[in-house]
Simulated assay, not measured.
Amino acid sequence: MTTIRSLLTGLISITFLVSSAAVSAQSRTGYKIVTASKTGTYIQIGRDLAQWVADPAQIDLEVLESQGSAENVRRMRFEPGVKLALVQSDVYQAFLDEAKAGNAEAGNIIRPLRLIMPLYDEEIYFVTRADSPINAIHEIRNKKIAVGALGSGTALTSRTLYQLMFGEPLPSENAQYLTNEEALVKLTVDKTIDVAIIVAGQPAKLFSDMKPEARNFIKILKLDDAAPETARAKKTYFPATIRTSSYPTWLTADIPTLTVKAYLVTYDYGLQSTVGNLARFAESLCMNFDKLQANGHPKWKQVKLELPPLAQGWRYYPPMEKRLRACIARASAAATPAPVSDRPARPCTEQEFVLGLCRR
């Protein structure tokens, strides 16, 4: 009888544990985030968000590869399950500009999208062969250029920069739409292109995986502040530095370049369950921000937990904005030391000193 009772007790316990696990699994939400190629920075940022933000918020966040920002905007708008996207600022602005100019498709895509927060600056790499006679970014005019894959933010950045610097579009016969990996092969093996433009936050896996011998095959062009083309590029993009510390195995000197801002983007959802889940994600983002900076990609150390004013046409997603601003305010209040009252100049008593009421 005792044995039967023990077996029944064990079965009941197992049933309870399985049932609890099933309830717990059902209570979690499955969402997706679109990033970029597997060797880029975006996909690592997405994985960090999945581990340190989504998981504590009871959200299973699937990190998806993509061609980059332009594709991400479309997938964010139309692909089921995609609730988050990483997008370059110039790509987002280009969609807004197209919509303003009367492009109905661009308007349909971009108007319902909303920002969660700005992230970091992504460096723009202008890569050429080590034996190339050109050394500066403004020398790429009339060269054969790999501008990034079709649908990528890199492709738009490449063409926008070329137009800004030289006052004319990049000739179609000089542009090749290639992935980063394909571009490096065409550059160094086939030698059918002169320059590969790659946008990635440093340290980017594509470059950090390179061996010391890489310097025998490629080099990165420098930004020349004295060139008039540079001044024109700076109307939209910002100066930055590719550091030797990011690629110590093969880079021998810091290299000045340009950057573009990355944003975390969502949609203007109204369904109550989605609103609640994304608000919970925002709270987790704020509460676990220190873990992102401590354990995530080094780029997180450049991210500020703040919501700055936005350009015309850009809007934050209100439910997440509300949650983030409240959390940021609480964190700021907690970090502000209590004021110390003014007292006549006299030595502190031990008790006053311990209580922080005066200083010795």
Rank of each mutant, 00 (worst) to 15 (best):
T35F: 11
P309K: 09
E122D: 15
R141P: 00
N103I: 08
S69L: 10
P171K: 07
S284M: 10
F16D: 09
A54N: 03
V73W: 13
M320L: 02
K205I: 09
T41C: 12
V91P: 03
K219P: 04
N216R: 10
L86N: 11
L271F: 14
A326D: 13
T160Y: 05
A146R: 12
Y247T: 11
R325H: 03
A338Q: 09
L150I: 08
D209S: 14
V18E: 09
S20D: 08
P248V: 06
L310V: 11
L223G: 11
G313C: 10
R215K: 15
L184F: 11
S341N: 10
I198P: 07
K191I: 10
M76S: 02
K32D: 08
T41Y: 00
V354T: 11
S19I: 04
S341D: 01
M287I: 10
A183C: 02
C358D: 09
L86V: 06
D290M: 05
W314L: 04
P118M: 06
S19G: 14
M320E: 04
S273V: 13
G30C: 00
L96M: 10
H138A: 07
G30Q: 01
A294N: 15
S332A: 14
V53Q: 00
S132D: 12
Q272A: 15
R47E: 11
Y269N: 07
I109F: 13
G270N: 13
I220V: 15
Y267W: 10
L17R: 15
P339Q: 01
D190K: 14
D90F: 07
P133L: 07
P298Y: 03
A329Y: 00
Y263K: 02
E122R: 13
P56M: 09
D48K: 05
T252D: 15
T266F: 06
Q67Y: 07
S152D: 07
G148D: 09
I193A: 04
I4F: 05
T188H: 14
L178K: 12
L61F: 05
T257L: 01
